[in-house]
Amino acid sequence: MKNSIQNLFAVSVLAGAMMMNLGAAQASDVVSTDTSLEATVADMPIEALSVEEEHGLIFMREEEKLARDVYLTLYDIWGLSIFENIAKSEQSHTDAIKLLIEKYQLADPVVDDSIGVFTDYHFVETYEALVAKGSESLEGALQVGNMIEELDIKDIAESVAVVEGNDDIVAVYSELMKGSRNHLRSFWDVLTKKGFTYEPQFISQEEFDAIINSPMETTNLK
């Protein structure tokens, strides 16, 4: 079962890689389809969760909230629409993880949805550091956007790597991955059009280049 789940995610990643050869990325929001991720998750059977799978869901719930909170804060500072638009998408990402947390009856770490408030203090420190960098200059703010999306891509890949028998978790992670790649393309597009520079921090230069030089992907997240 584990191999089949990993193969499912691999197919999603491969599909994204194939799209990367079709043309240059364009900056826009995530493209939605009519398929409901909520319905997809509800239709899939409940499987036993490993400790690693549970920890991954709890971690990703707050990491997606982190992205939303940072972008909302930077939007208040700079008034640049990309931060507001992607913050809305990040809300759908953290809500998607919440679907799984509720389905598997886990304790939701988001007990206070206020901006900058997290159960895991690691995210408090990260939020403060990212906002500090993003407050210094518009270039720094857009670099923070790239950093967050890179980090999401890295952490989603690590989280799905421990999934052993849960198609619903893989389905959600696959959508989050596509969304994060779209966000990275958008931030890169705005950053470079303003004449700023950025070097990848959390993924390889090769993977980064493959993502930013590819078209936006269609996802089931609204």
Rank of each mutant, 00 (worst) to 15 (best):
M44L: 15
P45V: 07
P45F: 02
I46L: 14
E47V: 14
E47D: 14
E47M: 15
L49R: 03
E52W: 05
E52M: 12
E52V: 11
E54W: 02
G56Q: 03
F59W: 12
M60H: 04
M60V: 11
E62I: 11
E62S: 08
E64T: 05
K65W: 01
A67K: 03
D69G: 02
Y71F: 02
L72C: 07
L72S: 00
L74A: 07
Y75R: 00
Y75L: 15
I77M: 09
W78A: 01
W78N: 05
W78E: 01
S81Q: 14
I82M: 13
I82V: 15
F83K: 02
E84N: 14
N85G: 15
I86V: 07
A87C: 14
K88P: 07
K88N: 15
K88Y: 11
S89A: 03
S92N: 13
A96W: 02
A96E: 04
I97P: 01
I97K: 10
I97L: 12
K98N: 15
L99M: 07
L100T: 06
L100Y: 10
Y104T: 14
V110W: 06
V111L: 13
V111Y: 10
V111G: 08
I115T: 11
G116N: 09
G116S: 06
G116F: 01
G116R: 04
V117F: 00
F118S: 01
F118M: 08
T119M: 00
D120E: 10
F123I: 07
V124Y: 10
E125N: 14
E125R: 13
T126P: 04
T126H: 04
Y127R: 06
E128F: 09
A129P: 03
A132C: 03
K133P: 08
E136S: 10
E136D: 04
E136A: 12
E139V: 08
G140K: 09
Q143S: 04
V144R: 06
G145R: 03
G145I: 12
I148F: 00
E150P: 15
L151G: 01
L151E: 09
L151Y: 13
D152I: 10
D152N: 13
I153D: 03
K154L: 15
D155W: 06
I156Q: 05
A157D: 13
A157E: 15
S159T: 14
S159W: 04
V160N: 02
V160A: 05
A161D: 12
V162L: 04
V162P: 05
E164M: 13
E164C: 10
G165L: 02
D167Y: 12
D168T: 10
I169R: 05
V170H: 02
A171S: 05
Y173E: 07
L176D: 08
M177Y: 11
K178Y: 11
G179P: 03
G179R: 09
S180E: 06
R181M: 07
N182K: 06
H183G: 01
H183L: 00
L184S: 07
L184R: 00
L184I: 04
